[in-house]
Design a protein around this nucleic acid. Structure first.
Lengths: 340, 340
DNA sequence: TTGAATATGGAAAACGTTTTCCAATCATTT
DNA sequence: AAATGATTGGAAAACGTTTTCCATATTCAA
């Protein structure tokens, strides 16, 4: 069947110990002659070490677990890309899990990753609220950390654990100010799920900008989306049905902005001439749609890179770090001055 | 440190054997009373079984390895989505690896997955040519299969192994005929990497359509891209520089079509009035760009689903199956009749 | 009360590797 | 020729689980 190290040793006519010395490049010297015989045997038998046996004895795995909402969502795809980059430089293997923001699934995946004895867990786009977290997850995470595991959260901070956080409040503030500057006073807002802190923070930043300008944001101008493109279309349809004097729409992420634009287009409402549309995140396709999307740039790849770096660092696993990354306004074509 | 099954048994005041019986729901009966004690101990100690120890003794892992070109490329993201769907229904864990079409990395990943003793490997978007494959990979794959592993390829078929294949020739034929019907005679083609059979097949289908119509496709109208958005922009720039009387451009996948459109837009060439643009694959964003992309629909999620199903089936792992999935033409806005 | 059936415990092998310890062999130097 | 050092082998423990076998204890029915 499958070749074991013992098979390799037998084939090479050496002892198990010697074969292991060759393969693990141990400090012990091995004659070039024997070395060659072992390596030949490895090739001939097509031997690959059993990672499970190794994990068992070495008590580490060089694998890292990543839990995201949905890997095919461009936001998470970009983050995963950053993670991957660092991971492959450091020769770590990634186990990627889609939670679809389902708390139960998220919990199940954490257990699964623990049972895989991953060296670290990166959690991005969690659907857990603080209650969930304190109730059950924190205990799991604590156990994981106390047994030497590393944890990093992206986009949200729980204790214990490292975190890398985009500046959601600041970004929304920037966009709010920009829209106001452009003369918009009646701005519809399509939010994310109300349970997510990302939604709260972005909404908060936007509120501050309006307050600064002495403007109101009536309840009827706000509608809850789900951060998906189709959620954006639904929300936009509902917003149109409310028949408000909108001059701009601020979607709290890009896919929803794109969904909203498609609804506007279907209704022969021109963007940006009739209504301006703004997004958030700056996913790659933001510059490819027409009109190109004015949005807030979040360095998604950077987010992933940083998280992976944290988790790879040699710090005491009980020493936590929180890193913030700035956002910035990217002005493209989908927002214009009111009345032009 | 970390709780073991022995710890659980001790805490519950039962034998190791009994604890194992409870946890593995073995056919042996255990008194409700003891069962409860064991389950309580599991909870109190926050016990999760060591998957590596299990893998070692059970000789299977319930994990499946997936190698793709790049998970953040929408083509592969959609395929991965299909795979994930079936995988999570079947309670399989996925290890996703990005090869970036680098043959060496691809080989390294296959070895890595073998060392992880995954139950199956799905390979999508391989950068290996037949030579590579026959030279080194086939041996690895054969070894994997002969030790009970399952293999499925997506988009390309190697022996041995299952495969699920989109109809690239047929799809390109459809698009070719459509463009011709619309009166286009001077059509630029942006291909994928010349090493990929996908490129060959799509080009072949297009050639057939032109031949049917008695049209030529001069070399100068063909330019090689790399299936990426930015590759599409480069190719389009080069194509424009050649100063041909183009009335349409056929990009052999959607991201390149989108890149091409952005170049045309930058050059104030209107799509589709001045030049029609066609894509291939029908990734989700194809309908969100403006003008919406006319393209060939490949059921990407289905591709992933089928591959996973094959790999999960109880067939003899040496019995191979090849499944074809049809493509279809999706007419949107980016292609119009010549001269209109 | 005996017998049978059921529940539990104890002990051990097996999975494939790494690591350690000591002994044995060999070549090289003094 | 003896001493030194390097190389190799042999054997065993350890990692945490599953599974098997047998022994013991308990329960229930006849």
């Amino acid at each position: 069947m499958r070749a074991t190290l013992a098979d390799v040793a037998a084939r090479a006519g050496v002892s198990l110990a010697t074969a292991s010395r060759v393969i693990n490049k141990s400090s012990h010297n091995v004659t070039p002659e024997l070395k060659k015989r072992v390596l030949d045997a490895v090739r001939e038998l097509n031997y690959v070490p059993n990672a499970h046996a190794q994990a068992l004895v070495k008590k580490q795995t060089t694998t890292v677990g990543v839990i995201v909402h949905d890997i095919s969502d461009p936001y998470f795809a970009q983050i995963a890309r950053g993670i991957q980059k660092v991971a492959s430089e450091a020769e770590r293997l990634l186990i990627i899990c889609n939670s679809y923001r389902n708390p139960d699934r998220e919990l199940a995946y954490i257990d699964l990753l623990r049972s895989q004895r991953v060296d670290a867990i990166i959690l991005a786009g969690s659907g857990l609220n603080n209650l969930d977290f304190n109730h059950s997850v924190s205990k799991q995470i604590e156990g994981f950390i106390s047994s030497g595991g590393k944890v990093a959260f992206i986009g949200r901070h729980y204790t214990p654990g490292n975190a890398v956080l985009p500046d959601n409040v600041g970004g929304a503030l920037l966009m709010g100010r920009f829209l106001v500057e452009q003369g918009h006073q009646h701005i519809g807002v399509i939010t994310g799920p109300a349970t997510l802190t990302t939604t709260d923070d972005r909404l908060k930043g936007f509120h501050i900008a309006l307050e600064e300008a002495g403007l109101q944001l009536p309840e009827s101008y706000i509608i809850e989306g789900d951060f998906s493109r189709d959620g954006g279309t639904l929300a936009m349809q509902e917003l149109l049905a409310r028949d408000l004097p909108l001059s701009a729409v601020f979607a709290l992420n890009d896919p929803m902005a794109i969904g909203a634009m498609s609804v506007l287009r279907a209704n022969r409402i021109h963007v940006p001439q009739d209504i301006s549309v703004a997004g958030f995140d700056d996913i790659p396709m933001a510059e490819d749609i027409n009109p190109a999307l004015t949005t807030i740039h979040i360095p998604l790849i950077e987010l992933g890179r940083k998280a992976m770096e944290m988790v790879l660092s040699e710090n005491e696993s009980s020493q936590f770090e929180i890193r913030h990354v700035p956002s910035k306004l990217v002005i493209r074509e989908s927002v214009v001055e009111f009345g032009r």
